[in-house]
């Protein structure tokens, strides 16, 4: 494997997103939402203005869990199928580059663009709020940013996998939207439904592990579990056993959500 080839593809993908202002637009969206949530997130409780980092992070988590998977899927769904459909894939593959290098370069370039806009967008808010945050709060906020990047990388990995499997861009975009619906909207409802229908008899033991089968839930657990104020506000995560709520373990699960879809993609893309 030649790192230089991966870097060439990755830097093209990254600079393409900088030049077409994709990174700027996404960063601005994140900054705007984060500021609004920080100052007005508690409006339901009858007050405005920044209150606590716990509540802010909890509100941001609810937002990010919808937004980042969507952005990552939209960013990555045509990574390969787009080149294939436009007719530029053959030329790329005729270069002294392996298919794995091309795939990794695409992924890393897009991941860098997504990570950069996430960190820039939320980081700006951290700077604005920094005067009101103690070290512990900053630590939590930093954890939130890092896990947001991981969440984005996991869904980007799924998107790149779809872009290898899909026959054309239209189908890839359909699959991307279906993936978003499944993990972000349907998955928890299914689990909840199973729990309710069986009167709580079914799956009590394996339930926490099933939550790990959804990167969005892993992200939620990572962020909410350590915040005592809000843990009880987030239904499903309360069933999660504290023994499993180790951030390193959850981080590893997130990494698996990045590596496994990419692995499947590279297997499918090998010829």
């Amino acid at each position: 494997m030649e790192i230089a080839q991966i870097a060439t593809i990755a830097s093209k993908e990254f600079w393409d997103r900088i030049r077409n202002r994709w990174v700027l637009a996404v960063a601005l969206v994140f900054t705007a939402f984060a500021l609004v949530i920080a100052y007005f997130g508690a409006a339901q409780q009858g007050s405005v203005g920044f209150r606590s980092i716990d509540i802010t992070i909890a509100s941001l988590v609810s937002l990010v869990i919808y937004l980042i998977p969507l952005i990552a899927l939209v960013l990555g769904f045509d990574a390969i199928v787009g080149e294939r459909e436009r007719g530029s894939l053959d030329l790329l593959l005729s270069m002294p580059i392996t298919r794995l290098e091309l795939l990794l370069g695409k992924y890393l370039g897009l991941a860098a663009a997504l990570a950069f806009s996430t960190i820039a967008g939320f980081g700006l808010v951290a700077i604005v709020l920094s005067a009101r945050l103690d070290l512990n709060a900053l630590y939590h906020y930093f954890g939130f940013m890092l896990s947001s990047v991981l969440l984005g990388c996991a869904f980007l990995s799924l998107a790149v996998m779809l872009s290898v499997f899909a026959a054309d861009r239209t189908r890839a975009s359909g699959l991307a939207i279906a993936t978003w619906f499944f993990f972000v909207l349907v998955f928890d409802l299914l689990l909840l439904g199973a729990l309710v229908v069986t009167g709580g008899q079914w799956g009590g033991e394996i339930f926490p592990y099933l939550l790990l089968a959804n990167p969005a839930d892993v992200f939620r657990i990572l962020n909410i579990f350590s915040l005592d104020d809000v843990r009880t506000l987030y239904g499903l995560t309360t069933v999660f056993p504290p023994a499993l709520a180790n951030p390193w373990l959850l981080g590893l699960v997130m990494l698996a959500w990045i590596v496994v879809p990419l692995g499947i993609a590279s297997w499918r893309f090998r010829t």
Partner: peptide, 12 residues
Amino acid sequence: GYLPENVVLYDN
């Protein structure tokens, strides 16, 4: 060196 039929390059 390879020139594909109907070569597609990057518009941007």
